[in-house]
């Protein structure tokens, strides 16, 4: 099993995942996933649609329970911890959801202030100042009074990022942080992520399939497989190691090639035929639509 852990390191692992397995009915979504994330890393989890990367993230934040395996965050086993201990641990990390997940009943500023109101004793004036700073960081100055329904999808995502960073947590999880953002805002979010690790010393775990972001911000990367390798780590390493990785599915994913390997080691499979039902002649293959192995 590939492991993202460097051979020689003096840094403490912030997250340790060992032999994580998750079944949904008869389907195995995560299959023996093991890795470590070290302090200061920007750890990227990438992979094709349905490979289990968002499910893996949900296990890391403790909203899903694994079928078996171990997850330690800050040295604490989260799969068996009680609700009170989990609550305390959650105060130490922030999470940016794919949809933003802003509370619709609150304004943008109230959303960002929420963790501060709940977990600090700061007075209202100071909280207001912190909220304004956080909104400024993500380019939302002057939008604090608006409801989430009154701003665009990209602004929602940035507001959610501001909320995730409100408490300056030492660990931030981020699910598709740049999906739906324009190139400039993608760069802004990437820069914010880099600033988190380089200036504040935070550790960031990012789930994404935006390859520009992966190589711009990632310091350690793992890729989850699909098909016969469903839920397994098929590649791990630094950005340079991933770029040079020999696995054809990794290369196909990096290059965005519609035709290639689907991650199944049992033989070459036309990826576009498997997923799209298009054969070599460019015709739609009805049988391929119903079978993952034509």
């Amino acid at each position: 099993m590939p492991d993202a852990t460097p051979e020689l390191t003096v840094r403490e692992p912030i997250i340790e995942v060992d032999s994580l397995v998750r079944h949904f009915g008869s389907q195995t979504v995560l299959n023996g996933v093991s890795f470590k994330v070290y302090a200061g890393d920007t750890f990227v989890i990438m992979g094709g649609s349905g490979c289990g990367k968002s499910t893996l993230l949900r296990h890391l934040i403790g909203t899903e329970k694994p079928s078996s395996g171990s997850i330690k965050i800050f040295g604490q086993e989260i799969t068996t911890m009680n609700a009170d201990a989990r609550q305390k641990l959650r105060g130490r990390y922030g999470m940016l959801f794919q949809s933003g997940a802003l509370l619709q009943s609150l304004s943008v500023a109230e959303n960002v202030a929420l963790p501060l109101n709940e977990h600090t004793q700061l007075d209202a004036g100071l909280i207001d100042t912190v909220v304004k700073m956080k909104l400024e960081q993500v380019g939302l100055t002057g939008h604090g009074h608006k409801k989430p329904s009154e701003i665009s999808g990209g602004m929602k995502k940035r507001a959610a990022l501001a909320r995730a960073l409100a408490l300056d947590p030492p660990l931030v999880f981020s699910d598709e942080p740049t999906a739906g953002l324009d190139p400039i805002m993608t760069a802004v979010v990437d820069e914010l992520t880099q600033r988190l690790t380089q200036k504040i010393g935070a550790t960031v775990v990012v789930v994404t399939h935006d390859m520009n972001s992966v190589f711009r911000i990632g310091t350690r990367i793992i890729m989850l497989g699909t098909g016969a390798n469903q839920g397994k780590i098929i590649a791990s390493g630094t950005p340079a190691e991933i770029r040079a990785h020999p696995h054809p599915a990794v290369q196909q994913f990096i290059n965005g090639d519609p035709q290639g390997h689907d991650g199944d080691d049992s033989g070459e499979v036309l990826y576009r035929e498997t997923l799209l039902g298009i054969n070599d002649t460019g015709q739609y293959s009805r049988s391929a639509i119903h079978s993952s192995k034509p």
């Binding site: 403790g62 959650r90 999470m95 949809s99 997940a101 619709q104 709940e118 977990h119």
Partner: peptide, 18 residues
């Protein structure tokens, strides 16, 4: 239900707000 499907309830849990 809307809060559940839009991940707002999960967000509350992750923010340690039961």
């Amino acid at each position: 239900g809307t809060m559940k499907v839009s991940e707002e309830i999960e967000a509350l849990e992750v923010m340690a707000i039961p």
